[in-house]
Simulated assay, not measured.
Amino acid sequence: MPEAPMPDADAPLWQAVLDRDPSPATGPFLYAVTTQGVFCKPGCPSRAPLRRNVRFYADAAAAEAAGFRACKRCDPKGERAALHAEAVRAACAMIEAAETMPSLAALADRAGYARHHFLRLFRDITGVTPRSYAEGVRARRLQASLAAGDRVAEAVAGAGFGSESRVYEDTARHLGMTPGAARRGGVGETIRIAHADSALGPILVGATEKGVCFIGFAETRDALEGDLRARFPNARVVPAEDALAATVRDVVAFVAEPAAALRLPLDLRGTAFQRQVWEALQTIPLGETRTYAGLAAAIGNPAAVRAVARACARNPVSLAVPCHRVVGKDGDLTGYRWGVPRKAALLAGEAKARKLSAG
């Protein structure tokens, strides 16, 4: 009777290679192909080699000591990625230092890449286009000048805008308020607030005349109000328990029993990219989740996974913009502004509600 084949101790590693899994559960490793003399990351897009030609190594140093060289496609040593990152950092510095927006051709020439290739690199690494990045730089300059008390015309010109009309055409995009209000540091804007208790602890709702601009929970009342004031440092904050009673009831009811999406008039302020992510979050159905990578793909920018995660972390209206419905690649809950246990509680409640509605 023939002997049974010996079990392959490296079977999990080999499966990760076959799956092209960039973050295998086994932890980081590299594999080498003896017939090609190269070593790769498990997520390498190259065609899978034959198992008998594969060797596994803990790191690049071990693979190189065995006589293998780094694959040029998957860049297992990260050398090409480091060059790309440095080129994009230099481009960002060039944009920051320029009085007016450098052309794409100038940025690409400075980086040493063709324009289309540089544009893809910049977008992949920063999550935005060079133009969007430059608009963010101009908006910061404008906000700083106005906060310092500069006249609107001078601040607009100094920030690199061609005319005041370009700022007034889309004040929310650049400042979240009119230039005059920004010049006064937000003075003149009123945010009404109301506190309540919920199944997840204290809740604070803040709203401008346009809509809800802040929802926080699970911290002390003072801490929640401090968070709101940090986001709107010079606005007038006034208690408005009666005026916001209906909104607060909706929020508390959603936490207790999320039978339907929390629909509220919102006043969202952020960059164009942040608002794009926040709008995508609002399309995730109750009781479902998306990965950060999936959300990045949904907004047409699949490489901007980290930028998407940062936008989720900056979400000012938890629950109404459901950033808790975004999870890690393997379903891990990862971080959450209000605590991972509360994220788990929210998702469990929504899953239960979805199951009951389906039954």
Rank of each mutant, 00 (worst) to 15 (best):
E169H: 13
A98P: 14
R138G: 03
D150H: 11
A81V: 01
R141S: 10
A147E: 12
M94V: 06
A134Q: 05
L142S: 12
A153W: 15
A144D: 09
A93D: 13
T100S: 13
Y168F: 08
R123Q: 01
A114N: 09
T129Y: 15
R151F: 06
L83G: 04
S132Q: 12
G160T: 13
H174T: 03
A148P: 00
V128P: 12
D75S: 02
E169C: 14
V167W: 02
S103D: 11
I95L: 07
F161M: 00
E164H: 01
A105P: 05
G149W: 04
A82G: 10
Y168R: 02
I125K: 06
A147L: 08
H84C: 15
S163W: 00
V128T: 14
Q143D: 11
G149C: 03
R140C: 10
E99T: 02
L119Y: 07
G127A: 07
R151M: 08
E96P: 03
H174P: 04
D124F: 03
L107M: 10
S103L: 08
A97C: 04
A85Q: 15
S103I: 14
T171H: 08
R131M: 07
T129N: 13
A93G: 14
P102C: 00
A87T: 12
A155V: 05
A108Q: 01
A114S: 08
A148V: 08
A106L: 06
A97W: 01
A97D: 05
P130C: 12
G127D: 13
Y133K: 13
L83E: 09
A97S: 06
V137P: 14
L119N: 08
Q143H: 08
L119G: 04
L146W: 09
R141A: 13
A87E: 15
R141L: 12
A134W: 01
A144Y: 06
F118W: 10
P102A: 00
L104A: 02
A111W: 01
R140E: 14
A85L: 14
S165Y: 03
A148Y: 12
A111S: 02
A105M: 04
R131N: 06
M101C: 10
V152N: 05
I125S: 04
A91D: 09
G158W: 02
A147K: 06
R123Y: 06
S132W: 07
E79L: 01
A114D: 10
R123I: 02
V167L: 11
V88N: 03
V152W: 00
C74P: 01
S165L: 10
H116C: 03
M94Q: 11
K77N: 02
L175R: 00
A90D: 10
A144S: 07
E164N: 03
A85E: 15
R115W: 13
T171Y: 09
A134G: 12
I95A: 11
G112P: 05
E164A: 02
H174A: 11
R115Q: 14
E154N: 13
H174E: 12
E99A: 09
A148I: 09
R166A: 09
A97R: 02
L107Y: 02
V156Y: 09
P130G: 06
G158R: 04
L104E: 04
A108S: 03
H84W: 04
P76A: 15
P130K: 15
G158T: 08
C74R: 12
S132K: 07
D109Q: 07
D150T: 04
E96H: 09
A98W: 15
E135L: 03
I95G: 10
Q143F: 04
A87W: 15
S163I: 00
R123H: 01
G127N: 11
D109W: 06
P130T: 14
